[in-house]
Nucleic acid binder design. Sequence first.
DNA 1: GCGACAG
DNA 2: ATCTTGTCGC
Length: 246
Amino acid sequence: MKVRDLHPWTLTPRQAIALQEKLARKVVHRGGPRKVRFVAGVDVSTSRFSRTAWGGVVVLSFPGLSVVETRGGAAEARFPYIPGLLAFREVPLLLDLFARLRHAPDLLFVDGQGAAHPRGFGIACHLGLLLDIPTIGCAKSRLYGTHADPGFLRGRSAPLFDGKGKIIGRVVRTKDGTRPVYVSVGHKIGLAAAVRWTLACSGGYRIPEPTRQAHLFVTRLRRESGNRGRGEEEKRGIGESETVNR
DNA sequence: GCGACAG
DNA sequence: ATCTTGTCGC
């Protein structure tokens, strides 16, 4: 039985919120990966003409940050995009892709929030909890919380506060002068470590390499497998690759 | 009631 | 996220 079979995905928004409140208590906001050999990134792209969603998982070596494996595919998104409930739309597809992965990531970057969420349970927490691995939520824009300007230079950051003065994440400048990214704890990692890993996995671009490679992969997958989407789902992943361990 | 609102 | 042409800056 696969992980997804243990989880009810066909929920109403109200039920989804109740589930988040329940699962949020199980998230671990401390620690971090001990030794990192593989870092992964995920991305999902949706069609405007149908409910088709293309997704991809890319595993990179660390500290080299070179791609060692890619898995991709398409499926029907069974839940609409609702701010705060993104996981219910993207996680099912991503779990299927992880089930086909040969390399087990030591750390995962998720394109979205972790604890910086209305109920402290963004998609990074959701994925981390179901996969039971350290995850970092690194979003391109804000969903929840308030903050000051982190400063112009790469490496600078500012705390992200919830409505009660509690720090739920950090706004991090990963590249001089570009818009900052929103970093928050996903699962099995602390905020300070999450920020350090984000910077350690960012090079000359604003987006951390794992997430950036996942986005590039999905864009390529979508282009090579014919766009559009309506009809046949469970499409094969094109351009998948793997590199034998060692 | 009005605005905010990951991807 | 998606769509879409040009354009501002290093």
